[in-house]
């Protein structure tokens, strides 16, 4: 389960609206609650570095991730997931999303942005521990 506040939920959806018709992307920081849920306590907007095809691809500069991780450590936060948008496509993971997902045990949140307006938002946990057997499994989003 992914647990996050209304303001964070609204912010990641708003980001997808702002970057439409291009994909937005960002990082979810927080901790894992005792019940195993990933609790988001802050989000970090990132720049989509895929300037060649930003309408259907995203990539976060790992250098930006190093900075976000460092700032998170200073607040006792860990990376618990990521988000991105699918402009005019469903809020479902694609083969590309699965192939490029490597953060096991983290949440991958996808917001469908239809004609510039955020529609469905879904979250998937990357399960497994090996590249050959990984899966993106739907998980509940609890907005608190």
């Amino acid at each position: 389960m992914l647990r996050l506040g209304q303001s964070h939920y609204d912010a990641l959806r708003q980001h997808g609206q702002e970057t439409y018709p291009y994909e937005s992307c960002g990082v979810l920081l927080g901790h894992v609650d005792e019940d195993g849920a990933r609790m988001v306590t802050s989000i970090a907007r990132c720049t989509n570095t895929r300037t060649d095809t930003p309408q259907n691809r995203y990539h976060i500069d790992p250098g930006e991730l190093v900075r976000i991780q460092r700032e998170g450590r200073e607040r006792q936060e860990d990376i618990v997931g990521f988000y991105h948008s699918h402009p005019d496509h469903p809020a479902q993971w694609s083969e590309t999303d699965l192939a490029e997902a490597h953060w096991f045990g983290c949440s991958y949140v996808i917001t469908s942005v239809q004609k510039g307006t955020p529609a469905m938002t879904n979250s998937f946990e990357l399960t497994g521990s090996e590249e050959v057997a990984k899966k993106l499994v739907p998980e509940e989003i609890a907005v608190i």
Partner: peptide, 16 residues
């Protein structure tokens, strides 16, 4: 030293 698995993805080419 930071170990940073990459973060990328997007809608599939077929559906794009």
């Amino acid at each position: 030293i930071s170990i940073v698995p990459s973060i990328a993805g997007g809608t599939s080419l077929a559906s794009a």
